[in-house]
């Protein structure tokens, strides 16, 4: 059974062009599945649909199942039960996910206690263990520090610790390393990879960066204009991209081209700039 499955999922925000258009996809247990796309591809909309985080104006059709259970149309209490316990989500901006006035340790402990009766001392011990696991040095002492005392990379680690606190089956990571420098990006991606092995978590990784996909993803789905164009294993995608858009996207990357050469430009029918402006807004 797949941990996450999309069946003909479409999302519309009023306009004529759907933000997500008939996406069907199965994510297998324990894998890191990358969804890669540029602005307006619908990748973030798809991720938010799983968590029930779309604005009220969104019309969602199709089916999204987490561990075999349909999540579309669930009421808010049932959704809350799923969030955190079964599915956790992390975002690009770690400082926005943390309360600036609370100590980071208490915020992790709070997440632990929100999903089951745990004594506060035990929650604190587990929070410290999690902080150690994600690589916060001197965790017991730093438990009571507030978020701004940590660097951007450390804050993202803390957000990840809170996200995996309740051993969710599925972790959705929306551009988790986009705000970080390359060295920190590599570390955080390695951390996500390590945690999914030790916790058996399945990861849905949303990114615009093919380099991130190459670093950690097992399989990849390429999205453009709301459609899922192709799904392949990461190594196949880079070695034998089957869709013309994927090929163009790979060719446009300066890392692969001879120095100073003109980069092949994506044909206009696949350009971000040819998408309707209203949909090209989810970064």
């Amino acid at each position: 059974m797949s941990v996450l499955s999309f069946t003909s999922v479409s999302v519309r925000f009023g306009g004529n062009t759907p933000a997500v258009n008939g996406v069907s996809l199965e994510v297998k247990p324990g894998e890191i599945f990358g969804i890669v796309g540029e602005s307006g591809s619908g990748k973030s909309t798809l991720a938010n649909a799983v968590m029930g985080l779309l604005p009220g104006t969104a019309q969602v059709a199709g089916s999204i199942a987490v561990n075999g259970r349909e999540v579309l149309g669930l009421d808010e209490p049932s959704l809350r039960q799923i969030r955190g316990a079964e599915v956790a989500m992390i975002f690009q901006d770690a400082s926005a996910s943390l309360d600036p006035t609370w100590s980071v340790g208490d915020q992790i402990a709070e997440t632990i206690r929100a999903h089951g009766p745990v004594r506060s001392a035990e929650a604190k011990a587990r929070a410290i263990a999690l902080m150690e696991e994600v690589g916060i040095p001197d965790a017991p002492r730093r438990y009571s520090d507030v978020p701004h005392r940590f660097s951007g990379g450390m804050r993202q680690r803390i957000v990840i610790a809170a996200a995996v606190a309740n051993n969710p089956k599925l972790l959705i990571a929306d551009e988790p390393t986009t705000a970080l420098d390359v060295t920190l990006q590599a570390q955080v991606l390695a951390l996500i990879d390590r945690l999914r092995r030790s916790h058996g978590t399945t990861v849905l990784l949303i990114t615009h960066d093919l380099g991130v996909v190459a670093q950690v993803c097992d399989r990849v789905g390429v999205m453009y204009g709301g459609k899922l164009l192709e799904v392949a294993s990461a190594s196949d995608l880079f070695a034998r991209p089957s869709h013309p858009y994927t090929r163009a996207l790979l060719a446009a990357n300066p890392a692969g081209a001879p120095r100073g050469s003109r980069l092949p430009v994506i044909p206009s029918e696949w350009s971000v700039e040819s998408l309707p402006a209203a949909e090209a807004s989810n970064g």
């Binding site: 615009h208 996207l249 446009a252 990357n253 300066p254 980069l263 430009v265 350009s271 971000v272």
Partner: peptide
């Protein structure tokens, strides 16, 4: 910029 646009601007 998006990757596809980035290539155009670099060119």
């Amino acid at each position: 910029l998006d990757m596809s646009v980035q290539a155009q601007i670099l060119n």
